[in-house]
Design a protein around this nucleic acid. Structure first.
Length: 217
DNA sequence: TACTTGTTTGAGGG
DNA sequence: CCCTCAAACAAGTA
């Protein structure tokens, strides 16, 4: 998604698919179904003088229309359940704010609402929720301990940025070893990655190892 | 390099 | 449109 890496609170301009707001120490979920007015079937074609083929054609159309309507209803129900489950898992976020996000994976939600991960994946892409702390894509609530938002590239990018910043501030006489960086990363943003990964990111940034950076005087 | 874990995507059924 | 399944893909790890 273009611009995905530019900030946490991007889409003020999208209209959310679902709202969450506090009420009485609890949270209420409200679906936005503005764009789906009440749909219903109109059985206008069922006339006895119609030909067999026409009746057949009509009833097939009716059938397909009716499952479309059912699908839309089901979608609403599923979206509601997913949202409910997210609120359950990320309650501290809804109560206190963005830095209280807990690690969460699709499978957690999938198991909770008894559905397949792939369904959860599809439901949570391109859907937005309005919360007391802003509007977020549903994907925002999933982070497997590493990335802060967008699943792939963004996570490692922001970790790289942080590494660069830390090395920039280090004492030239006492450069930060990868292991130390690893510790700091954990303290500062709660990211838990292996020392080896830190080394990989550092190399990617064209920063030499701590022993090479050490200055003698 | 190969294994593991997590997410996405294409096919197929309703 | 909904859903699942399996296979592909991506990232970290050893």
């Amino acid at each position: 998604m273009p611009g995905a890496s530019f900030g946490e609170s991007e889409p003020l301009y999208v209209s959310p698919d679902v709202y969450v707001f506090p009420s009485d120490g609890d949270f209420v979920i409200l679906l936005n179904d503005d764009d789906i007015p009440n749909l219903r079937l109109n059985d206008f074609l069922d006339k006895s003088h119609a030909s067999a083929e026409a009746k057949d054609f009509a009833s097939k159309k009716m059938a397909s229309a009716s499952w479309l309507i059912k699908s839309l209803e089901q979608r609403k129900r599923t979206l509601y359940k997913v949202m409910e489950s997210i609120v359950k898992f990320q309650r501290p976020f809804f109560e206190e704010g963005v830095d209280k996000l807990k690690p969460l994976i699709l499978k957690d939600i999938a198991e909770d609402i008894e559905m397949h991960e792939s369904s959860v994946s599809r439901i949570t892409t391109n859907k937005y929720v309005s919360t007391p702390h802003g509007v977020f894509e549903l994907k925002f609530f999933f982070n497997s301990a590493l990335s802060s938002d967008d699943g792939d590239a963004v996570g490692s990018e922001s970790v790289k940025a942080l590494i660069k910043k830390m090395i920039g501030k280090e004492d030239p006489k006492n450069p930060l070893a990868d292991e130390k960086l690893c510790e700091l990363l954990k303290q500062e943003i709660g990211v838990d990655i292996a020392r080896r990964t830190v080394a990989k990111y550092r190399t990617a940034l064209n920063i030499p190892s701590s022993s090479k950076r050490k200055q003698r005087f």
